[in-house]
Design a protein around this nucleic acid. Structure first.
Length: 491
DNA sequence: TGAAATT
């Protein structure tokens, strides 16, 4: 509804009336008597492959195809001209679609007529512009990533101009004007764009870039909607976008989302929510629909957060930790003197950490809060909570930094450590709100460093005290406060 | 030393 209104406000009919018009026998057929001689192939007009369908707006309702024809014919041979009529009443809608045989004619007509004159009886100037059904450019627009941040629009143009006519070239910049290392490049045609992808994607690595050049088609509207949804969901904190990653519970998550959208929509219609909420609901419905179509393409990878990570077995608890482990763990960290616990023990038979802090489950509980929130919607949610199993006892944590002084940088991690293992290692010192091991995007290999965030500085300090210099195999962990972004210490 | 990103 939102989109439809926006389109109509723009002076063009929405797509439903457009397509229904085409399927309507009374207006179908591509000529409406213009330039068409059935049975004589030599006179059937051909249109250019790159012909543009024009939308003509602000046409007096007393003008039909034959009246309009002379007006437009002076710019070239007309391939098709169709006045739009109401699907049911057949009433003239005051606009038309026009396709010239040649692209050039359309361009000429557009520049000569668009908003240049007002037809008798109308109070706004005539509209002559590519129809909404024409490519809005997404199929010839490229997203370019992994650029050097120093590269200018001109640099990018030079790189891409060999493959076609560049209509638009924009470097994406932050508020400060600094390049984000990516750009949009729009060609005149899809083929040109494809050629550029073929030739340039992955072809080179710009100085300072962490991997090779990325050249791909820019997000479609749908994808953009998805992206916006996810951002919005994240900000509102109520519809955890990570729900998509529930894996086997994906259907559950989707059902939740759809239900939720329906509830919001109906509530909004009842006038209880503001327009923004209605908008959110509409977006939500779209998102759920997209998910159903598989467009979300979210990886269905359950994390190892609550289960058994590689290298860790449970609950085979050795009675006494041995001082030297197969994997090279040297035993307890300096201040970790608790008993081994039943929930997670390293496969090498060593549990180097004290009992898990009682607050350790809090992040999960916090994560759950978003879901429990739904129960505030009594009726409808009651239904789905009966219809579906409870969510798994694991919700992927959001990656985020804690307050200043709570974030640790950890280097020299064992290669096989993942987020879960990292968290496991630091849980004894407090409430870990996030743990992240960096992984090389190309190889999926750990880069052997990561971040852990606590919810308070004391935990962070305790972790540094205990774990900095902790020996694992041949390496000793480096555990220190994460360098603040603005600091420019070399190391 | 929180990956680089979708106007």
């Amino acid at each position: 509804m939102y989109i439809k209104m926006a389109t109509l406000a723009n002076g063009q009919p929405d797509n439903t009336s457009l397509s229904s018009n085409h399927s309507n026998p009374s207006t179908n057929g591509h000529m409406n008597g213009l330039n068409h001689s059935p049975g004589n192939p030599s006179t059937i007009p051909m249109k250019d492959h790159d012909a543009i369908k024009l939308f003509i707006g602000q046409i007096p309702r007393n003008l039909d195809e034959k009246d309009l024809k002379p007006l437009f014919e002076e710019f070239g041979k007309i391939y098709e001209l169709t006045v739009l009529k109401d699907r049911f009443t057949g009433m003239h809608k005051g606009c038309a679609f026009l396709t010239y045989c040649e692209r050039e004619s359309a361009l000429k007509a557009q520049s000569a007529l668009h908003e240049q004159k007002t037809l008798p009886g109308m109070n706004r100037p005539i509209q002559v512009k590519p129809a909404d059904s024409e490519s809005r450019g997404e199929d010839r627009k490229l997203f370019v990533g992994m650029l050097n941040k120093q590269q200018s629009e001109d640099d990018v143009r030079r790189l891409f101009e060999a493959f076609g006519n560049i209509e638009e070239c924009t470097i994406l910049r932050g508020p400060d004007g600094n390049s984000k290392g990516c750009a949009f490049v729009k060609y005149s045609s899809h083929a040109e764009a494809q050629a550029a992808i073929n030739a340039l994607h992955g072809s080179q690595t710009m100085p300072g870039a962490s991997s090779s050049l990325v050249v791909k088609f820019a997000d479609t509207d749908k994808e953009r909607t998805m992206r916006r949804m996810q951002q919005m969901a994240g900000q509102m904190g109520m519809f955890n976008p990570m729900a998509i990653q529930f894996g086997a519970y994906g259907a559950y998550a989707q059902a939740l989302m759809q239900q939720q959208a329906a509830i919001m929509a109906s509530v909004a219609q009842g006038g209880y929510l503001n327009p923004m909420a209605a908008f959110a609901a509409a977006q939500m419905q779209q998102m759920a629909a997209l998910n159903m179509n598989g467009l979300a393409a979210a990886p269905m990878t359950p994390t190892s957060g609550g289960s058994t990570p590689p290298g860790i077995t449970a609950p085979a608890v050795p009675s006494i930790p041995s001082p030297i482990g197969v994997n090279g763990f040297t035993g307890l960290p300096p201040q970790a003197n608790g008993q081994p616990t039943a929930e997670a023990v390293f496969a090498n038979g060593i549990h180097p950490y004290p009992a898990q802090s009682p607050t350790a489950a809090d992040p999960l509980q916090q994560a759950y809060a978003g879901v429990q929130h739904y129960s505030a919607y009594p009726a409808a949610y009651g239904q789905i909570s009966q219809a579906f199993p409870q969510p798994p006892p694991m919700i992927p944590q959001q990656q985020r930094e804690g307050p200043e002084g709570c974030n640790l940088f950890i280097y020299h991690l064992p290669q096989e450590f993942g987020d879960a293992e990292l968290m496991q290692m630091f849980l004894p010192f407090g409430n870990v709100i996030s743990s992240k091991v960096f992984v090389d995007r190309a190889t999926n290999q750990s880069k052997c460093f990561g971040f852990v965030s606590f919810d308070n500085p004391a935990s962070a300090q305790a972790a540094i005290q205990a774990m900095n210099g902790f020996q694992i195999g041949m390496k000793r962990l480096k555990v220190q406060l994460k360098r603040p972004k603005d600091a420019n210490r070399p190391y």
